[in-house]
């Protein structure tokens, strides 16, 4: 009986351990080792921190990372500001069919690939696109307006892509908030603003934080949206990594970039958790 339990335990554990080691651990160790190599000649490599040194001393790379991080934070904040009322409506005000329909509508854009979604925005925003034509038709613009290839276009794309990942945790946490608690807030003299601030937001904090982490990480790691919508000025960190690996054949520097991205984004997330007084266990639990 005890042997049986143990066997079951091992059988259950094996896929997890295999998954962690084969798909997560080993590739990262390998990447890390690659990042420590320095090319000294044709086909010759030394072990050194030269790649990390390059990252830290080349202002372009640091600047690109900083820009990517700041844009991702802004995208996260905007996503939160839009998703919060939407989620509140879905979780607390909409009922029955309407509720599930609205939730499904948030999901629909994700049935098509990210590429198609981004193309959709390009069609809307380009100089000869729908929005530009609409503005001219309405007399708000006297010549074609280019809305593509700038930071605002990147932001639109990022927010659009991230929305679902903010709405889902928010709806889940908001649904768990008893309606009576909100009513009690009003009953005891609160108004819409104070009830939101003192009752709804503190209750939704784990959802807000976990949604924000996911959206931040997704934005930071997004490649397609910034490159396609950002055009000549996109300057996204993942683009640097891609070009080091694929265009420059410089895997060593690319791997170092990858690790810096992992390391710095972890620090940012950790800092945000500290700042908001949340813990990872509470957020993911």
């Amino acid at each position: 009986m005890r042997d049986g339990t143990r066997l079951g335990f091992i059988l259950l554990l094996t896929p997890l351990v295999l998954w962690l080691t084969l798909l997560i651990f080993i590739p990262h160790v390998d990447m890390f080792l690659v990042s420590l190599r320095e090319r000294v000649g044709v086909g010759q490599y030394d072990t050194s921190l030269a790649n990390y040194h390059t990252f830290l001393t080349e202002p372009l790379y640091l600047w690109t990372f900083l820009r990517t991080a700041v844009m991702s934070v802004v995208a996260t904040v905007i996503t939160l500001l839009i998703a919060f009322p939407v989620s509140y409506y879905i979780a607390k005000i909409a009922k029955g069919r309407l509720q599930s329909t609205l939730f499904l509508m948030c999901l629909i854009p994700f049935y098509v690939s990210e590429l198609v979604r981004t193309f959709g925005w390009m069609i809307l925003l380009r100089e000869t696109g729908i929005v530009s034509n609409l503005l001219q038709w309405a007399g708000l613009a006297d010549q074609p307006v280019e809305m593509l290839y700038n930071d605002a276009a990147i932001m639109i794309g990022l927010v659009y892509t991230s929305m679902l990942f903010m709405v889902v945790p928010l709806v889940t946490t908001l649904e768990s908030l008893d309606d009576a608690v909100i009513e009690a807030g009003y009953d005891l003299g609160g108004n819409a603003w104070s009830v939101t601030r003192e009752i709804v937001i503190p209750h939704a904090a784990p959802g807000i934080v976990s949604g924000s982490i996911v959206v931040f990480m997704l934005s930071l790691g997004n490649y397609l949206t910034p490159t396609m919508l950002g055009g000549k000025d996109s300057l996204w960190f993942t683009e640097l990594i891609y070009s080091q690996f694929i265009v420059r054949f410089n895997w060593e520097l690319g791997a170092a970039f990858g690790f810096m991205l992992l390391f710095l984004s972890s620090i940012i997330v950790w800092g945000m958790l500290k700042l908001t007084g949340q813990t990872l266990e509470k957020t993911m639990g």
């Binding site: 009576a180 608690v181 009513e183 009690a184 009953d187 003192e198 503190p202 209750h203």
Partner: peptide
């Protein structure tokens, strides 16, 4: 008069204490 201005208060069925405070 809206609920937050009425001189009436309510003890809810499941009490609805604020768990965040």
């Amino acid at each position: 008069v809206p609920p937050n201005k009425r001189p009436v208060n309510m003890v809810f069925q499941h009490l609805a204490l604020f768990p965040m405070m």
